[in-house]
């Protein structure tokens, strides 16, 4: 009994510690003006939340968060940051009041909603009694795959995952159609290099094609 109690205490401390880091990072992001620091801090935010997902036993979610949130979106935001200025404009005090009210109202609604949520790992909660429990029971007979997340994702919910893959593909296609494939600057640069021979390209020498397509 003593051991169980101490274990619960340790988990609670880990949760409080990680959530406190998340809170501090979020406040720092909200107060910061340098976009580079904000991108880095949002990567740290994702990494800490991935750690927290591991602490609540959601390993697959943690993996995805670490790969997408901390890796991919940080890299894409760094790429996007090159197109804009390095710092955010400071706003007036009055223009902050509206967003502040929205945040407080949303936060209050969410905290009110948590009152009705079942406790973490509650065996009688809706997530653990319905189809989720059935998957855990029949998965081994049906598919013979040890990690139950993979058959749920790919076999039982194969249609959903096909839809998700299509969504990702459509997102890539839409961005490419809106922004262009980014090939024009490359083609220009390769042509220049091939014509000019080896390594004549200097620093800060921007190809003309890339200049032409800058947003006005």
């Amino acid at each position: 009994m003593q051991g169980v109690l101490a274990n619960d205490m340790g988990i609670a401390l880990v949760n409080i510690f990680l959530l406190a880091i998340l809170f501090v990072v979020a406040v720092a992001i909200a107060r910061m003006r340098s976009l580079f620091a904000i991108v880095m801090l949002s990567g740290i935010y994702s990494l800490v939340s991935a750690t927290w997902y591991v602490a609540v036993d959601a390993v697959d979610v943690a993996f995805t968060e670490a790969a997408v949130g901390a890796g991919m979106s940080t890299a894409v935001l760094l790429g996007a940051m090159l197109l804009t200025s390095r710092t955010a404009k400071p706003e007036h005090l009055f223009s902050r009041i509206g967003p502040m009210l929205v945040c407080v109202a949303t936060g209050a609604a969410l905290i009110y909603a948590t009152v009705d949520l079942p406790a973490l790992g509650d065996p009688n909660s809706a997530a653990n009694t319905g189809v989720g429990y059935t998957y855990l029971e029949i998965n081994w007979y049906d598919t013979g795959i040890p990690n139950v997340v993979t058959p749920v994702l790919a076999s039982y919910r194969g249609f959903d995952t096909l839809g998700e893959t299509t969504v990702v593909f459509t997102a890539g296609l839409a961005v490419a159609l809106l922004l262009g494939f980014g090939e024009r600057s490359l083609a220009e640069m390769i042509r220049r290099e091939d014509k000019g021979g080896a390594r004549t390209k200097g620093k800060g020498q921007v190809p003309t094609a890339a200049k032409d397509e800058e947003p006005s």
Partner: peptide
Amino acid sequence: GIMVIEIGVLFGVSGAMLTIFYAFAGRVA
């Protein structure tokens, strides 16, 4: 089946992500 569709997901996701990145990053030389 799961192996093959996971390969499809691998191709789809990495291709789409790189397309998005190139679309952003290709605009600066």
